[in-house]
Each structure stands twice: as structure tokens, then as C-alpha cells.
Amino acid sequence: MKHISTLLLVFLGIYTLIADGTIEGKLSVDSMKPSPSRPGYLPSPTKHPVLKPESAPAIVYLERDDGQYPRQRTNETAHIRQSGYQFHPSMVAIQTGAKVNFPNLDDEFHNVFSCSKAKHFDLGRFRKDEISSDVLFNKPGVVKIYCEIHQHMRCFVVVLDTPWFVKTDPEGKFSLKNIPAGDYWLRIFQPSERRTQERVTVMDGQTNIVNFTR
């Protein structure tokens, strides 16, 4: 009986992998807008040179019309480092209810904060290797994050109700796997904050190719 149960579970697992669909594609990733200016001031002197910001990926995600999603990624904790007076990565996506940690790897203070509608927080001044508290993102939306001391620094946390999201690779390729069959909106959030969307259908065991052109 035990062997039968085990076989059944393995079969169901394999069936699930085969039954769920995949969406793959490619898009042109644009770039972030220039950093907000700091009126009256040139960039503040820093102990080490300020590195160039890394190019941000686009976020590709699937949303359903009924807005009902499994809460399968709420236990994740993303990490956004401050290094070379820049945020790394400069764009992350998380499911609503997940957390983000902001370790400081620079020799000087940073002060991470956001005044976005989806999340208000201010971590205060914290130094290298100091443990900063995890920030819980419990409302969906785009959260713009800044450093109060180094105003050229900024990054995005895209908080989504859906667990089906992925970052594009540097060429703009993406792959969303293990998606239950059904009709979805395939949506894209670009580093420039531009959004695009397309209607897609996911079918069991099939890979749907969706390429976006500008």
C-alpha cells in the first residue's frame, strides 16, 4: 500500500509539471530615467568613487481577471545591497507579503527610505555590515526607494499579488514556468516605469512564445 501511495504522489508530481504551461519570450528592455536631481548641490563627496548604476531588467508577470492567486512566494526575502553608492539590484519583484532586506556594503552610512503609496518606510542611518530590519511589503504597487544621504541612488521594488513573475535577462529574454492553464494578462514593468500588456492563454504541457516589439 505504501509503495502504491508513493507511486501515486510521484505520478501526480510529474503530471503537474507536465500539465502546467510555460510562457517564454523576448522584449526590448529600456533604461531607468536619470536619477532625480538634488537642488543646489552637486553629488556629495564620498570616500570612494560612485559607481555607475547597473542596468535594470524588466519585470514580466501574469495576472488573472479574478485576482485570486496562491500565496506561494510570500515567505521569500529579497536582498537589495548598497554597494559603490548604488542599489544592487536596482529592480526586484516580490509577492505581496514578502520582505526585502537592505544590507550596506559601503564604508559610509546609507539611509534607505520610500514615500511611495504602497509603502512608507525609513531605515534611518545604518553602517556597513549593520543588520537592518527586513521591510515587509504588504500592499501591491511600485515602491520607489531612495537613499536620503546619496540622492542619486534609487531602485524599484515591484510588489505583486501574483506569484507568477520573473525578471528578464540582459538580452530581455524571460521564461515563466509552471503556470496553471488559463487566460492571463501578460504584463511588463519596464525600468522607465513604462507598462505594456498582452492577453495570453496558457495550455497544459505547452510552451507559449510571446515576443514583444517596441
Binding site: K33, P34, P36, S37, C115, K117, E193
Partner: peptide
């Protein structure tokens, strides 16, 4: 005006790189 990107947009328009 607090929540909008109005000032970010305005800032972008007054920059030359």
C-alpha cells in the same frame, strides 16, 4: 501632489545629458 510623479517628470524635463 504628494503621491504623484509630477515632480519627477518635471525634473526629467529640465535636464540635459
Amino acid at each position: 501632489l504628494r503621491g504623484g510623479g509630477f515632480f519627477d517628470t518635471l525634473d526629467d524635463k529640465t535636464r540635459f545629458d
